[in-house]
């Protein structure tokens, strides 16, 4: 499978997915740290990919997503944005709403 297909698969198969530097317990960048703190505060389960230990993903994701920086949050297959957009949405209560809606859709299907 090409690296681009791997990335598309990850995005498709993980309804709440963040590409970040480090992991949620040991983020390696202030922007990734804030992004995961917000996700944890919102309280829904999420998946993460550490791009520092996956250099191929780090090099190729920006082409797939048309987004050059990290972190990048995907919900239900769509790019939500990076730390700045997440912060604006979080402060407006929109991030929690989006994540709760996504989780509700899945429990309705189950």
């Amino acid at each position: 499978m090409s690296i681009e297909d791997t990335i598309k698969d990850q995005i498709k198969n993980n309804p709440i997915l963040i590409y970040m530097k480090g992991n949620p317990n040991q983020p390696q960048c202030g922007f990734s740290a804030r992004a995961t703190q917000m996700l944890m505060t919102c309280g829904q389960k999420f998946a993460y990919v550490d791009i520092l230990s996956n250099p191929e993903i780090r090099a190729n994701l920006p082409k797939v997503s048309e987004w050059p920086t990290f972190p990048q949050l995907f919900v239900d297959g769509e790019l939500v944005g990076g730390c700045d957009i997440m912060t604006e949405m979080f402060e407006a209560g929109e991030l929690k709403q989006l994540l709760d809606d996504s989780a509700a859709k899945r429990s309705a299907q189950a």
């Binding site: 048309e66 987004w67 050059p68 920086t69 944005g81 957009i85 604006e88």
Partner: peptide, 27 residues
């Protein structure tokens, strides 16, 4: 959308982001 706005700026500042700029907070 917010994503489209950011993507427009990233495209505009492509040269800077591929060069010296490591982080660009956009509002």
């Amino acid at each position: 959308s917010k994503v489209k706005r950011h993507q427009a700026l990233y495209k505009l500042l492509d040269t800077e982001l591929n060069g010296p700029v490591h982080a660009l907070a956009l509002h």
